[in-house]
Amino acid sequence: MKRLLFALFIATPLFAQDAASILTRVDAARNPLTSFSVEVQLTTNAGESSKFRVYGKGSDRSVVEFLAPASEKGKFLLMLRDAMWIYLPSASRPIRISPLQRLMGQASNGDVARTNFMTDYNATSVATDNGEWLLDLAAKDPSIAYARVKLWVDKTANEPVRADFYVVSGKLIKRAHYHDHGRRVEIEDLLRTGNTTVMQYSSLAARENPDKMFTKDALGKW
């Protein structure tokens, strides 16, 4: 009894620390560089394929350059914390994408892929599930896309293995599987069964991305 109590007593603060540190290490593993560029090959189960280059700075700013297919080449996407902008070569200025529009198409997967667990979520519990950490994460802010995330983390590598994304009503709508040290991410759309998207990351390199690159006015001009 006393041992149990003692265990409980030290477990609680330990848990809080642990969750936060786990998250930190997870994010560090996923985003090792502060300013970087990386290539992404995206394939859907329907056989569609596209290629991008992502320029990132920090945890909440990135610019996506569409490389392939030819029909998409020349488009740019600017993803900031609260807003997303798209630049189309045929338009004179970038267009803001509303949160609603982000529901559709690959923008929603973009949201999933760049979820920043450390900054946006608080761990409400940590458990062990099948030899992996299972963190229950609650969004810190009501404006964050997914209200709740369940995250499975590999204990040794501190890398995410799987994440379940829930909306405000509690419905599970996306699931991400992380492979190959985060170089391959499979995202399942649970509302449209059978729809999966695979994102393959390559050529990750450090790059000096100036701040002004992440403004909508700069989009498409370089």
């Binding site: 609603l100 529901l103 009501p142 896309a145 997914y146 209200a147 909306v167 419905k171 509302l191």
Partner: peptide, 13 residues
């Protein structure tokens, strides 16, 4: 599926 008044995603059966 839609977004809530605070901007996060939501879905309802």
């Amino acid at each position: 599926m839609s977004t809530t008044t605070s901007g996060s995603l939501n879905a309802m059966d």
